[in-house]
Computed example of a mutant assay.
Amino acid sequence: MEGKEEDVRIGAIMFSEGQPIGTAAQTHAKDYKEPPPAQLFEPAELRSWSFYRAGIAEFMATFLFIYVSILTVMGVVKSDSKCSTVGIQGIAWSFGGMIFALVYCTAGISGGHINPAVTFGLLLARKLSLTRAIFYVVMQCLGAICGAGVVKGFQKGVYDSNGGGANVVAAGYTKGDGLGAEIVGTFILVYTVFSATDAKRSARDSHVPVLAPLPIGFAVFLVHLATIPITGTGINPARSLGAAIIYNKEHAWNDHWIFWVGPLIGAALAAIYHQVVIRAIPFTSKR
């Protein structure tokens, strides 16, 4: 406890109240190495097998994620009695558990995004190039479409008669309610991603890279518990798009914009909050 108090005292002296906002964390020697910002365009990536391997990993991870999670949703909604199924809690565990497993499997290959909103947030923070971000989003969306398609192929009647796992704003809620739920839910997810993969945290706690998928999956689980009754929980535009395309009924498209606009706004806010407020990235370059 004494050590922590000493750290606080030294920090108060080192970073005085008079320092400009957004510069304090960059003005002293750091005990960790921050990866350099990614270039906006990296044409050399297009000639690298690792680039395409990462895209394939994103496709497969999103495919498996949608397949298992929507299959779980179908098992719940087709039952007359929710007591005989895993219920909302089981759906939330399905989504969160699959993210935990798949991020663990793919983090070393593609970063384990499995979500265009996560990719967008990391792009804004300059953690990857625009070239790679576009490729990831395309592969994620294709994976989601294929995952939902396989579920429909297994049980077409059940799929078509029970909503196909498509995201819609539930009765009793407004479009504004749905948009707000998607913004806040995605903010929680993307902020967790930034925190779990922070270079500073990894350098000071060697087990963090191993455990990083756990808080990310748990964040997905908790957000689903909160927002399934409102929107069915999107927070992942690829997941919403895949289900909407395969289900392809008019009411599935009426609110579809919410499941892109909400997650992208939430991801942008999380990126700004983490990079500017928490990490204090300088607004101006050093002279």
Rank of each mutant, 00 (worst) to 15 (best):
W253A: 06
A133H: 06
V210W: 12
F63S: 09
F218Q: 04
S48W: 12
F15W: 10
R9Q: 09
D7V: 04
T62M: 14
V210G: 05
M1I: 12
E17C: 09
K82N: 07
A270L: 04
A252Y: 03
G217R: 12
A92K: 00
G149K: 06
A270E: 04
V261K: 01
F120E: 05
L71F: 12
I10Y: 12
V220P: 11
F218C: 05
L124H: 03
L225D: 00
G3I: 07
A252G: 11
L269F: 06
L142T: 03
I10W: 13
G18I: 02
A44P: 02
L241E: 01
M60C: 11
I91S: 03
G11L: 12
P263I: 03
E2Y: 15
H251G: 03
F135H: 07
G147W: 12
W49Q: 14
V208K: 00
Y191S: 15
P209T: 12
D80W: 06
Y32F: 15
V208C: 02
G11K: 14
G55Q: 05
K33S: 11
P116C: 13
A252L: 10
A57Y: 10
E17H: 11
W260C: 01
S48Q: 15
I216T: 09
P213E: 00
R201H: 11
E250C: 06
D160P: 01
A25K: 03
F218K: 01
G90W: 02
P116Y: 13
A238G: 01
V193N: 05
N248H: 03
L241K: 02
G172S: 14
S81T: 13
